[in-house]
Nucleic acid binder design. Structure first.
Lengths: 163, 163
DNA sequence: TTATTATTGACTTATACTGACCAAAAATAT
DNA sequence: ATATTTTTGGTCAGTATAAGTCAATAATAA
């Protein structure tokens, strides 16, 4: 019966999200040290929040610079063709997907202009690379490779959908 | 909480970039001492800006001459097509590349509009996915992960170049 | 309990900026 | 012509600042 204790991570996440919303352009620059001070935590906590909440899989990009005048910039990508379509297709991927099925799906997406030819190329290269590593470097079973392929594909598709 | 203040380096960088844009030909001649005076800094600061912002990997060449009527000339390289440049950048990746270095490179490519934000997002997701697998699933050493990261990045960049 | 997620702090790395000293080219004096 | 002086720019090492990494620990969820 305890109240949901709002975690620090959640609070910081909400703060950054708020800043992003205020800032029309969908990006905001931060000082890691200042943020840490404001929320009374250690600076590396900020890295944890960024890693776990503002990851590319979630449609965010993070740029940063160390040293004097250092900063952390969080960018929220917004695509105009932000489709439930893509989300739906991510569902279609399911838990496991073969190379053939994956390729078919990508061709389909390309034909419907949900992704560009270049984007399709990048995705295919990434999938193939993982396949190769799984097969010859780590000796992963075919089925497990199908699982991993589905994982990667879903991550990529949802990252595009969330943008 | 203060926003990151603009650094001297950034200001000088912007000034030079502006001069380059005004000057159709894509090159501009400077006096180190004058620049230093204008921005109230030590002359070697100008060298720092040139080294860190107008380096060949950013698509610039710098020529200079000492002595009376000495000068510094900044030349902006123009590529016939972006893809030519992508091949060059694949070389820059080298055999091994850290997460930080990879991100810097992608930011650079994005700023120069060699890749789109969506393309960058996909690439980041792919790199991160491989990193995660390598780290927690297969227990790959950090250095080997740098090797694998370089491999994947080069595959993607060259595929874009050849596509 | 066991697994996952959150938090911390010691250590590492990257960037900005300065100033003292070095090197080269042109102008001037001999 | 040659040497000297003046006018540029170059290099490097030191200092300050700020972010990143990693592994150990704590808290929470399953």
């Amino acid at each position: 019966m305890s109240l949901p204790s709002s975690s620090l991570t959640k609070i910081i996440e909400e703060y950054i999200t708020e800043l992003l919303e205020e800032n029309e352009i969908g990006e905001v620059s931060l000082r890691r040290k200042d943020l840490a001070e404001r929320f009374g935590c250690v600076p590396s906590q900020i890295n944890y929040v960024l890693r776990s909440r503002f990851a590319p899989e979630n449609g965010f990009l993070v740029e940063s610079q160390r040293g004097g005048h250092g900063y952390i910039k969080v960018i929220q990508l917004t695509f105009n063709n932000c489709d439930e379509e893509v989300v739906h297709l991510a569902d279609l991927v399911g838990n496991a997907i073969t190379e053939q099925e994956a390729r078919k799906l990508l061709v389909n997406l390309k034909n419907r202009e949900v992704i560009s030819p270049r984007e399709r190329l990048i995705i295919e290269v990434a999938l193939r690379s993982q396949e190769e590593n799984g097969r010859s470097l780590f000796d992963i079973s075919p089925y497990r490779r199908d699982l991993m392929r589905a994982e990667l594909l879903k991550k990529i598709l949802t990252s595009l959908a969330l943008g």
